[in-house]
Structure formats: structure tokens, C-alpha cells
Design a protein around this nucleic acid. Sequence first.
DNA 1: TCCCCTGGCACATTTGAATCGC
DNA 2: AGCGATTCAAATGTGCCAGGGG
Length: 546
Amino acid sequence: MLQEKASAVTDDGMTRVQPGGEAELVPDPSRLGQSTASSIPSGNEPDQNIENIKVVLHERELWKKFHEAGTEMIITKAGRRMFPSYKVKVTGMNPKTKYILLTDIVPADDHRYKFCDNKWMVAGKAEPAMPGRLYVHPDSPATGAHWMRQLVSFQKLKLTNNHLDPFGHIILNSMHKYQPRLHIVKADENNAFGSKNTAYCTHVFHETAFISVTSYQNHKITQLKIENNPFAKGFRGSEEGDLRVSRLQGKEYPVISKNMVRQRLISSHSHLAGKLGAGVLTGHPQVLSSYQYETGGHLSNSDPQDPLSNHFPQTRDPGLLYHCFKHRDNARHLELGCKRPYLETSAAVSEDHYFRSPPSYESPLLSHPYCTEAITSREACMYGSMETESGSGDTDEPNPPSLNCNMWATMQPYPRYSVQTVEGVPYQPFTAHFTNTATVTSVVPHPSPSMTSRPQADLGVYNSATAQRGLPVIPPSSSSSSSSQPVPGSRDRSTHPPLYHRKPGSPLRPHRDFSAYPAQSTMSIRDPSYQYQMGLSSAGTHWTDS
DNA sequence: TCCCCTGGCACATTTGAATCGC
DNA sequence: AGCGATTCAAATGTGCCAGGGG
């Protein structure tokens, strides 16, 4: 079925799916100097150019270096930036059309990893996925000219392992593999985000996959970070990362860190060298399109160098792309579960916050308005959706200021989650969840036995204020972000983001653009049924299944 | 005992307000 | 008064480490 409707695939594995269901051939992104980005345009305006948008990963070579070593990203309770930071160069946009750029980070597979013998190995089943969140670029929405004018940087994005993170950081599980994704949503006035005409595309750069850690496991990664991250300059200097420590401790001899000892011991006894280049990656890429979910097929990786290329499905069904939403109700079978190290401290965050009783799977993210304190910051607009539900009072901010950023709830797609496709179902436009609880709830999938322990919250577009007022609010632009006001008495701008104030004249009035969402057409941008990812590699060179 | 996480630390960079000169 | 350049303290980001908990 899906295969029959599959779009044409280019000889390089790159496929374009026309909104109308037709496929067109596009150049191999790698040949264009792009990373293995994939996009699946959506919407019903074939003459619009969202399907022609090209995205190039900035500092791809650096990303590759990390990828080859097995990228690790530190996650902390307070939130940690990614390094390398996620920056892209976008071309092919309509200069006058407004777009929203956002990223999310989804599990790359359903494994938990451990660093053993100087390589990553599967250590078991993944913890239940964290509530998905999106990071909306603070410039959003902005015209294509704006996006194409310069690099689009998501460097302010922060990762946390705090399940109750109130700051909108992207919540991840430690020792799990993740894949960042970029979504481009057309949001011009005639094609308001969430309207029937909404078009979007998703780009995935396989070399940006990483394993989240609370402390670096691979010394190679540590060194790469120190060498390349300006903020880590203090640890530079020959072997002197260690020498510095020794100086600090008033010792004449280098102090070898515990980690280094471990690394070096391991190195000396392992066959790392042989494995490094082997590309032994069996952690299956799981941030995959609905096609894979549906067909179990594999999409070819557009990156010919990626050993996992042939793990990706090549078929894509534009029809599925457009109408999956309702199918999800029947097809997404979830068993909610969640590691909750922080939940236990909060009575308000009850179990059912994470464990919704089937069959009416209801994402806690979506069923409970995000209503914590303002999570907006000067730059970051990361929107969560789950933390506060009815227990919003548990946050540190007793009186949450109104939130002017959108809240985005995301879900973590896993390939094994099947998405039942019903042919003939009308196209369901991409609809951001600037909706109230009821609306969101109405569209979340129901659990099924085929899906286990994977809370798949809808990728809703949430705004705390919106959730409370029922009015959607658009993310602030970066220009307006500079006008943000710090929280009085707050030293930590990251942990106490200032309220956000949109400058007059900022593009797109939120209410105009987002208030008219058809409640019943809400869908998830991260709903695998709406995702088309190609060339997604799940791991670095020595991320291996046991 | 091992693994993982947390909080504190020192250092470097970034940011923005204050100051100065034109 | 307005503008741009400079200075400097505060804020922020970073990896390392000791210690704690499961």
C-alpha cells in the first residue's frame, strides 16, 4: 500500500515528495555539499517552494569528527548546550514567505547504552522516552530572506535530564542515543501555521546523532570538545588539561583524572583501533519516517559513506504524510512509562502524569497545559508541555508570569511503532498544537500492544499562556528577544529567563496566525506519520549493539 | 563494588551597562 | 544631545572532581 504510493527515489536515495503525492527527483544533497538532510514537504501548495528548501549543516566536518568518535552530549539538571552547536544554512526559501524553524531531538533507537571497552554498547532497553519538546528558533517566524541571510543557529538549545525541567529545555535520558531534527514550517499569512495549507519539511543530519551523558565517557570526545569549544579553553594546553589540574592542586606532577585513567587503561587493553573505523552501528536508526513504521522497510541513507545507509526505507507515501493524524489514534500503541527521578519529589506530579491508562492514551504533555513560569529567554524558546500540569505550583515560581513563547510538546517516534494508514483519508494538514487540552487530547493516539513503554506525546505546539487562555502565541523573534526583561533578582538568565516582549511590528501576529487552528486537525510534527527522514544514521562509529 | 548522577569549582568567553571622547 | 568606542564587572558556558546513592 505504502509502497505502491511511494514516491520516486533518486538514484542517490534522495526523494522529494510533492504535496500532491507526486515525487520529484532532487539532487543528492551530499553532492550539493549538504549533509544527509532529508525533507518531506507537506501542505497543498505545490507551487510553493518548501520542497525546494535546502539545508546545509554548518561545521559538518566538525560534526563528522565527533560522529566518528561517537558524539556525546552532556546533559545536566540546569541544562547544557550542545557542542558542536546545531547551525544550518538554509537556501531555497521564498524570500517573502514566513517560516518557523524549530528543532527537536528524538530517540535514535530504543536502547540504553553503556560505554564499555572504549565503545558504546547496548546496555538494555531504553528508558521511556522523555516528554518531547521542541526548540523554536527565536527568530521564528521570519521571512525566507531572513533565514537565508545568515546561518541559522540553534546554539542556545539546552539539554537536560531533569524530567521536571521548567525552563523549556529539551529533556533527554542519559546514556541514550538521540537524533536532532530540523523542521521548517511555512507560516506566512496566507498559510498560517496550523492551517490546512501549512507546509513543512523535516531535515535530519545523521552526523548530529549523539548519546546523552552526564559526564563524558569517551576521552576522545572530551578532547574534541576542549579543542573546539571556546568555553573549554581553560582545559586546553597539550596534555595540560591534566597539568592545569596539577597546578591547581599545587602538585608538581600531572594529575591524571579518573576518567583518563580509565580511558587509557581501556585503550591499552582494547581493540578500539580496529573498531573505530568499522562503523559497527547496530543501534537501529529509529527516528524514521512513518514509511518505515508502516512498512518496516528501510530507507536508504543518502550518505553513501554511512554504513547504515541501507537501513532506511526508501519508500514514502505522501498520502500517509498528509493523513496520518487520525491513524495515529488507532495505530500508536503506547504504554506510558517514564523514568521519574524527579517526579517523586513532587506530589503534584502524580503518576498518571506519565502513566495514562490505556486505551485512551493521552499524552501528559498534551493533556495538561504547560503552565509553569515563563520559560522564555533572551534567545531560547524551548517549549515543553509536561512539567506542570495541574501541579504547576510545584515549580519554583509560585506565580508564573505569562508566557509569550509557544510551548511545543513533542513525541518520540520509534520505528517499531506502526502507523496504520488508511487510504483515502483526507489530508490532515500539519497543525501545530496551539490548542487547548481538549483539542490535544482528542488527537493523541491510543496505546496498543505493539508499542511498549514509550510515551509518545504528540508534538504539540504549546504555549503556557495559550494553554491557559486558549490563545496561541507565536514564538518571539530574536530581535524582540533582545528586549526581554530579566527576572528581577535573577543572576542566572538561563535558569530564570526573562519575560519575553515582542517588539511592535514583529512579523506575524500570533493570534492572527495561530488562533484559528482547526482543533480537530491537530497533529504532531513529530508524528512519524508526518515525518520523512532519510539518511538518518543512528550512531557513531563505535556505537554498537552488544 | 560499580555505575551513574549531582553539586561545586576554576577558568574562559560572552554580554551588557557604564564611561569616555568626539 | 547623540553616537561610537572602550572598559569592566557580571553572567554564562565549560570540563573536572569528589562525593553520594542505587
